[in-house]
Design a protein around this nucleic acid. Sequence first.
DNA 1: CATGAATGAGAGTTCATTCAT
DNA 2: GATGAATGAACTCTCATTCAT
Lengths: 195, 195, 195, 195
Amino acid sequence: MGDKSLQKRNKIVETAREVFFRRGYRAVTMKDIVEACGISRGGLYLYFSNTKELFEAVLEQEHQPLPSALDLSAAKNANPGEILLMYLDEQKKEILKKKDNLAVAVYEYMFENKLSEYENLAKKGFEEQVRALEQLIAAGVAQEWMICESPLEAARNIVFTLEGMKVTAQTIGVSAKALDSQIEYIMGTLGMVVK
Amino acid sequence: MGDKSLQKRNKIVETAREVFFRRGYRAVTMKDIVEACGISRGGLYLYFSNTKELFEAVLEQEHQPLPSALDLSAAKNANPGEILLMYLDEQKKEILKKKDNLAVAVYEYMFENKLSEYENLAKKGFEEQVRALEQLIAAGVAQEWMICESPLEAARNIVFTLEGMKVTAQTIGVSAKALDSQIEYIMGTLGMVVK
Amino acid sequence: MGDKSLQKRNKIVETAREVFFRRGYRAVTMKDIVEACGISRGGLYLYFSNTKELFEAVLEQEHQPLPSALDLSAAKNANPGEILLMYLDEQKKEILKKKDNLAVAVYEYMFENKLSEYENLAKKGFEEQVRALEQLIAAGVAQEWMICESPLEAARNIVFTLEGMKVTAQTIGVSAKALDSQIEYIMGTLGMVVK
Amino acid sequence: MGDKSLQKRNKIVETAREVFFRRGYRAVTMKDIVEACGISRGGLYLYFSNTKELFEAVLEQEHQPLPSALDLSAAKNANPGEILLMYLDEQKKEILKKKDNLAVAVYEYMFENKLSEYENLAKKGFEEQVRALEQLIAAGVAQEWMICESPLEAARNIVFTLEGMKVTAQTIGVSAKALDSQIEYIMGTLGMVVK
DNA sequence: CATGAATGAGAGTTCATTCAT
DNA sequence: GATGAATGAACTCTCATTCAT
């Protein structure tokens, strides 16, 4: 694929993201994309054969830069509690940000493609998140900042809670205040106090 | 509507439930229902005008019997900790049961109808669940079975966690073991030990 | 058909008239009639098999009392000019009356059933109208109230003009004033002056 | 729209004209057009969204060439009486010509779309026709070929009469002879004699 | 007679997908 | 590569008509 082609492909993916964000996954048609992109019907097919392919391309592009606060754990000389707090705060922002509404499309996609590669990707993502949190909490315990008998389950609990918040935000909604209280509570269960 | 009509309506709703369970919400067409029910095209329209109406009828039927363990709190002379455990166990079973896969359809429905009456229903359900758990935990604390500074946030945390488990079960899956460990962890955060 | 049946039939026809008046002929469905009458689907079919039959029944009922001013020519001792004027005035009112909007349905019916009995009925009606007017004008000429070389063509001209007004009223509309001026003009062509 | 598209569009309009001519306006379905044109279902929708749009396209095409004898009034050195006669003759031919049966569809369309733009178009057409005739008659009077006190009403009368003839032709029918006699009569009312 | 549930044909409409240019 | 006209399958929805009760 030439340079120009790649550029066009990227433009399609970006526009498609916008569409998926607005309409979810299942409701989007190739026609929608064509119209949003202002390209020809046949033109789109040169790059993507269906909305699934397109959405997967969107997800790929999406996942490129995912620099979570967790990755920075080593680089900074903050203590584990502070890092955790930063991470939860970052997640809170994601949940509240309208941008994350691609979440709806992602859910729909995952519901429809239960056995897809994306599932595995998501699974891996889930597990990595758990592992990172587990290590963080373990470190926190070792350094006596935190109290926790089972860092693994605590980590899983945080991930489940975040997932629950995310989906609740997309359906019945959540307030920033509710999220703040939850963060405080989670910190509390680990024996930490949010100032 | 005569008795027979009502019977037929119920049969349609039941069959529709099956279809929504298998295919989710968005993918289902009136034609699918017609074929699944073995009735005529026009026949279905006598009862429901579109899949939204049908799905709402399914939800209504669904919500009729919601005998959660929480309702039984007063009737039994079990202690709060035991009641909570029973409740979490019941939820675990729901999550693992294939039957609950209607969850996917419910999510899709909620994503599509963000401002529907169902949203309010769901909101109310969420809040009721939180309130019931809060009271349970408060009682547990009062009776010195549990340790918890903020029963409200603890209750919310449990509901978010359950929601997170539910959606995770529908996407990347969860094992019974993972759920058990989480239950144990949650009990632990409240100062209780699962035997 | 029993007395009660006849009563019901009449009620259907009356209601149907209302419907045809509102919607024209072609747009009306059996369902419309059923709903307007508040009877059962099968019930309607007991009396009429389709909208054509129904509309013909409406027309029949409609034509029962058609006491035009022309019929009264003998009974009154008015002069022919006055009678003509009365007739034209009556027609004017018919044209302006919303009630006559059944005209649209009649046109549609006639367009669709070019060779129907109604056509002959209408033809007869047309010719009778022409004949009556012709005699009236001839009498007017004989009594030296009017000037006209060809009473037959004058009569036909009036009927065509009225028909033209009627259809114009149903499409682009006509004002009462325009009709008045035309009446005056027609009288003028017959050598008469409208005071 | 490319050249070829335009060609196809024109072909559709022409075929549609044929269909409307045969079946009127209301009875025509998109399917009828599709079948008459021998194109695909979706293909037709590329050009027209419904029969109303299609019919309006037919009308537009229809109105392109409307070279009435009246327009030629200046160009020819015929006298007003001769021009009027030519015009009425032309109208007679239109009325008798099968081609003008699109009249039925036009009436149906106007009945259904009482307040449409076409109404205004038709209204304008009506008024233009009246004005042209009025000027012609006024000229005839000025040049002492005709006798008429109110050229405006005379003009309106002619238009109403023609409209009446047109609709009568479409319903109960008119003979060429009847039309001829009427023309002669109309000329007579203006003080002219048809040789 | 009367009812109204049920049927199924058919109209309208939208899109994924192809293909000649 | 790119275009967009064209196709046809699939879906929604409405009614005329029948028929068991």
